[in-house]
Design a protein around this nucleic acid. Structure first.
Lengths: 214, 214
DNA sequence: ACAGATTTTGAGCGACTGCTCAAATTCGCT
DNA sequence: AGCGAATTTGAGCAGTCGCTCAAAATCTGT
């Protein structure tokens, strides 16, 4: 069972799909453009994947798994909302400098009108959501909020919001930077609340519990 | 100076563009599809607007101005973060039930790889940002956070995040609902903090000021 | 009623799309 | 070496795209 000859071509196409997606955007990602980036014949897209959508779906999973795996270690070291935000900014900055646009943002945009892409995009996004969820559980459980916030929902909100800000950056970079700076500020405020003295802490928790019951 | 005959056609095309955008998505919005929705010849797109991008840019401004004006009154009545979130959800729900997809989300997605759309999208988005900013200034100034948060940046973060969640809803509706529910919960928590007793309030403000200085 | 400008039309150009297909090539195996 | 299967190729089909253009229709002022 040596690796089939075609397996290399499959990988070339997956890589080519991701490169085309991040360098040219979803609108210019076609069988021919991907094949050109991969250096193979365009008909191979259909031989190996059946359709362009299927190729993009597999490429989405492929790329997201790679990236999540690469950053998992760093994610495990995050211990505050501010650090989580900083991580997101750095990760995104790395790609932006290389002239890249976020893969998931592109796919999410394309998936709006291509149902077949939607499932794969949701799956790829959920890989990130799962990681963010782990971080949130760890971070929030140490604060008064941990008792009342829903990490599962918040992880989805955080991931979706981040994608939104990435897209916003595409049309107004300065605005996006200011938005992220404001969130940084807010994270610092949240961190400060965690450092309240024991009396104030108790007052806060008490008030939150009353609100939760009401 | 009676209204030119062509002015009606222009409006038909603008309406057709918006309808096509929200019903079919940016990927299927073309000169021919828009003209079909407007019930006019496709060549008129180029006679009246010069290019498809130009038509979409004008349609973006047209649609956003209309919608912002329609909701301005309601926006003025918002007095808490929870109400702001509820407003966003309701506004979006109205459109979703009509089978619509958010116009700005579609344009934002398309603008990533079409520089000419980017400017118009940014302009349209900034109309919403301005409204959100007004609300945030009013809402935040009544809380301990008002002293440290940046409404200008936060308004951008809120608008972009909302678009991100709208797009996320396109691929995972249940996930998006759970995300919004979690944010609702968080808004309730923030509201509860505002109702702290005077002693705890002072402790919180004191702590935040120390954090701001450090 | 007529001339001149404005608006509308349908055909068409070149480029692109997803996808198919028969023929050519390469591969693993005996 | 030779056979069958897996893989690769380039041409091609039918469709869509943005956009142009000459001709037709419609409006405007006299």
């Amino acid at each position: 069972m040596s690796p089939q000859a075609g397996a290399q071509t499959r990988e070339k196409l997956l890589d080519g799909a991701i490169r085309t997606l991040v360098e040219q955007g979803i609108a210019k990602t076609s069988a021919r453009s991907v094949a050109a980036a991969a250096g193979v014949n365009q008909a191979l897209v259909f031989y190996h994947f059946g359709s362009v959508d299927e190729l993009l779906s597999e490429a989405c999973r492929y790329a997201t798994e790679q990236r999540v795996a690469r950053y998992r270690e760093r994610l495990a070291g995050i211990s505050s909302l501010g650090e989580l935000l900083a991580f997101g900014r750095e990760m995104h900055e790395e790609e932006r400098e290389a002239g890249h646009v976020a893969v998931l943002a592109q796919l999410l945009a394309g998936a709006q009108t291509q149902p077949r892409l939607a499932a794969a995009t949701a799956a790829g996004l959920s890989l990130w959501v799962a990681e963010v969820e782990k971080v949130l559980v760890r971070v929030l459980s140490a604060t008064p909020l941990g008792e009342f916030a829903d990490p599962v929902g918040l992880a989805r909100a955080v991931a979706a919001s981040f994608v939104g800000i990435e897209l916003y950056e595409g049309v107004d970079r300065d605005g996006a930077t200011r938005a992220l700076d404001a969130l940084d500020q807010l994270a610092a405020v949240a961190a400060a609340l965690d450092d309240l003295g024991p009396v104030a802490q108790r007052a806060v928790r008490h008030r939150l519990r009353r609100a939760a019951r009401g």
